[in-house]
Amino acid sequence: MKVNIKTIKDITVIEAEGNIDSRTAGDFEKATVDATQGEDKVIIDLSQVEFLSSAGLRSLLMLYRQVKARNGKIVLVGVSEEIQDVMENTGFINFFTLTELLEDGVKELS
């Protein structure tokens, strides 16, 4: 699992790559928490993520809660259909705004 951080305008964009599961969720959390410290506009680009386990889904929700506590907003980008299905079935999807493309995510937060 790899995490790249970049900034578009005032938005922090986190690009994840690989699977986010119990083995990698800790690293993912650390990287994202550090990168979003004090930020209130966050995009997580999951287009290179194939699988999110229960632990992975919880990392996302934890990040959502932290950003939301600052009245910030978080958008998930490029979530595969399969992961969307899992998120729908387990209720996690209800917390997030999803867009297909990064530019739509940027628009959403601009």
Partner: peptide, 20 residues
């Protein structure tokens, strides 16, 4: 009974249904 049983997420799935 869970669509996500193969991922071991049946607990979250059932709770989501009850909440809904």
């Amino acid at each position: 009974y869970a669509a996500t049983g193969k991922f071991g997420m049946q607990v979250d799935e059932l709770k989501t249904v009850i909440k809904e």
